[in-house]
Structure formats: structure tokens, C-alpha cells
């Protein structure tokens, strides 16, 4: 038994049990976001896969690994998408070094 069970994703709709209108509004919105638009479904799945890694959501990683494969992505493309997430996450940490340096300057002689 682990905290995250892969079968739990199938229980996601249960979130609507005590707040059905909010759940419906969210799932309707979710469905529209992932519909084919200016971006293809395939592009959206790769973005979702990268974001899933950035937010480290195990359900989203499983779901968008499958969705990416089913939209014809190779593992090479998917790995590159994860690197994009890693670069932004790493870059985000590093670029805050500017704040550190500015604050250090203010505090230093």
C-alpha cells in the first residue's frame, strides 16, 4: 500500500460527490482545454506531460505518458518534454539567485 495508488485516478470523478457543480464546471473546462484548437491534441499532451513532471503529480505522469504515446509521440520526444520542464524548474531556482544577489547587496558593505 502506497500513498498514491495508480487505481486512484479512476476515482477522480468521486470528487464531485459533495460539490457536483464545481466538479462539473472543472471537468467541462478540462475537456475544452484538451480539445483540438490552435494547438494540436498531441502538442497539448506533451505540454501536460512536462507540467505533470514539474508539479510531480504521479497520476498526471501516468495519464499523460499514455496520452502522449496514444497521440503518436516517441519516448524521445517525451523525454525532451520532461527536459523542458526540468530546465524551467532548474532555471526558475537559479534565476532567483538574482534576488539573492540583490538582497545580499543591500545587506552588505
Amino acid at each position: 500500500m502506497t500513498y498514491y495508488e495508480s487505481t486512484d485516478l479512476g476515482k477522480f470523478p468521486e470528487i464531485g460527490k459533495d460539490a457536483p457543480e464545481l466538479a462539473k464546471a472543472f471537468f467541462d473546462y478540462y475537456g475544452k482545454v484538451f480539445a483540438e484548437g490552435e494547438l494540436t491534441k498531441r502538442e497539448k499532451n506533451l505540454i501536460a506531460l512536462a507540467v505533470a513532471h514539474a508539479v510531480q503529480c504521479p497520476y498526471c505522469i501516468d495519464a499523460y505518458t499514455g496520452a502522449s504515446l496514444e497521440s503518436g509521440c516517441s519516448t524521445g520526444e517525451m523525454t525532451e518534454a520532461v527536459h523542458v520542464a526540468a530546465a524551467i524548474k532548474g532555471g526558475s531556482a537559479l534565476v532567483h539567485g538574482v534576488q539573492m544577489r540583490k538582497h545580499a547587496e543591500r545587506m552588505s558593505m
Partner: peptide
């Protein structure tokens, strides 16, 4: 055919790609 245990992509977009 999919290379694994998943469904194929949408055919016309796969063809274009």
C-alpha cells in the same frame, strides 16, 4: 500499429506527421 500496450493516434494527424 502502436509499439506497446496503448491505442493508436488519430489517423489523419498521424498521416500528416
Amino acid at each position: 500499429n502502436p509499439v506497446g500496450a496503448f491505442l493508436p493516434p488519430e489517423q489523419s494527424s498521424a498521416e500528416a506527421r
